[in-house]
């Protein structure tokens, strides 16, 4: 991705491009290195969550509007894909667009209502929407089978219907999506709306006074984010072959998606991917050590708190050095009396 940058090639930049190229090559060769389907399935999970994190980052990172309903968009994509396939035999490659359309409309509605207000209203509204979605999926028993969830049965290997004997194919599909998403994110970052979003993050009033239509820009980012999330949802569901509201439309999943970006570095291009790279293997490990009784969420919750308190810039900031304010602990050690309540707009 960075290798396409037209800017002069400084040595440090060359280094970064080299590392990135090596990483992309590694990602492409990854399934060849192991014969174990389990390892590849972790790779699939990584690509999925990296994609979801990149999508979340567009609204939650660049614009700092924390959404807790991205699991609902995953669910919309997943359920649309399954229902259209089970009832009409429509290929997921087509139903992806149906799912993204529904998600876009949903995001448009939530966004246009909640972005009129500042502060925590957006986050509150997303939680409400996520709950409506989950309850509705549970309620529509003859359509969604309620809590029992939906399954698709494997018939034969088929690219059109996204059915593969081995997970390699899913891995490559999602990897290509990840690269595509990173490109979208990169283009957004360099475009006018991208600058607007970051201006909104730093100071919404100032942004508005400069003539930025903050409501419209936030709405655009949220819809884009929802569409991207929903598309991943459809593909990921065909990888899982089983979906139910408890797993795919839960607050757990919504938080997990947010954690990827926050831990990696919210509002940065590589943050969400780095977050997924660190967290997906870590949570596999935690499941092995602690048992998958749901206590794996301790990891996500704990890391979220630790990163925000001590290193707001996430893992990425350890390398770039920017975007990370002085850790609060240091500030505390320097002098407890310092009043920091005054300025509330500083990032």
């Amino acid at each position: 991705m960075t290798k396409e940058k037209p800017s002069p090639l400084k040595p440090s930049r060359l280094w970064k491009a080299g590392i990135l190229l090596a990483f992309v090559v590694f990602l492409f060769l990854f399934p060849r290195m192991s014969s174990s389907n389990y390892i590849v399935s972790i790779g699939v999970t990584f690509c999925t969550f990296a994609c979801l994190g990149v999508s979340w980052n567009i609204i939650g990172g660049y614009a700092a509007q924390i959404s807790w309903c991205h699991s609902s968009f995953v669910a919309i994509g997943a359920y649309t894909g399954f229902l259209l396939f089970n009832h009409f035999g429509i290929s997921p490659w087509i139903s992806v667009f149906a799912g993204t359309g529904i998600s876009a409309v949903a995001a448009l509605i939530i966004g246009s209502i909640s972005f009129r207000l500042r502060g925590p209203f957006f986050s509150l509204c997303t939680i409400a929407f996520a709950e409506i979605m989950r309850v509705w999926l549970l309620f529509q028993k003859n359509l969604t089978q309620g809590a029992n969830g939906l399954v698709i049965t494997f018939k034969q290997e088929s690219f059109v219907n996204l059915m593969f004997r081995k997970d390699d194919a899913f891995y490559y599909i999602l990897l290509v999506m990840l690269i595509l998403y990173m490109l979208i994110s990169w283009l957004l970052q360099r475009s006018r709306p991208g600058y607007y979003l970051r201006a909104i993050k730093v100071d919404e009033d100032a942004a508005e006074s400069l003539g930025i239509k903050t409501h419209r820009i936030k709405l655009f980012a949220f819809v884009l984010s929802a569409v991207m999330t929903s598309a991943v949802g459809t593909i990921y569901a065909f990888f899982l072959t089983y979906i139910d509201p408890a797993s795919i439309s839960s607050m757990d999943l919504a938080t997990r998606i947010g954690t990827m970006a926050v831990v990696g570095g919210a509002g940065t291009l590589f943050g969400p991917m780095v977050g997924a790279l660190a967290l997906v293997p870590l949570s596999e490990l935690a499941n092995v050590l602690l048992g998958s009784s749901g206590s794996g969420m301790l990891l996500y919750g704990g890391l979220m708190i630790i990163v925000i308190i001590f290193r707001r810039g996430g893992i990425v900031s350890l390398f770039s050095g920017d975007g990370a304010p002085v850790p609060a602990l240091l500030k505390k050690l320097r002098g407890k009396g310092q009043a920091k309540n005054g300025g509330d707009s500083g990032a």
Binding site: Q65, G296, L298, I305
Partner: peptide, 30 residues
Amino acid sequence: VINPIVGRPPTDFVVVTMGLAFVLVSVIQL
């Protein structure tokens, strides 16, 4: 967890308290 982030942008509270929610549930579960 709250004292260190007093005075920070409100999004920090959203993320930290949400993280706290999951920590509390997991700890009680354990």
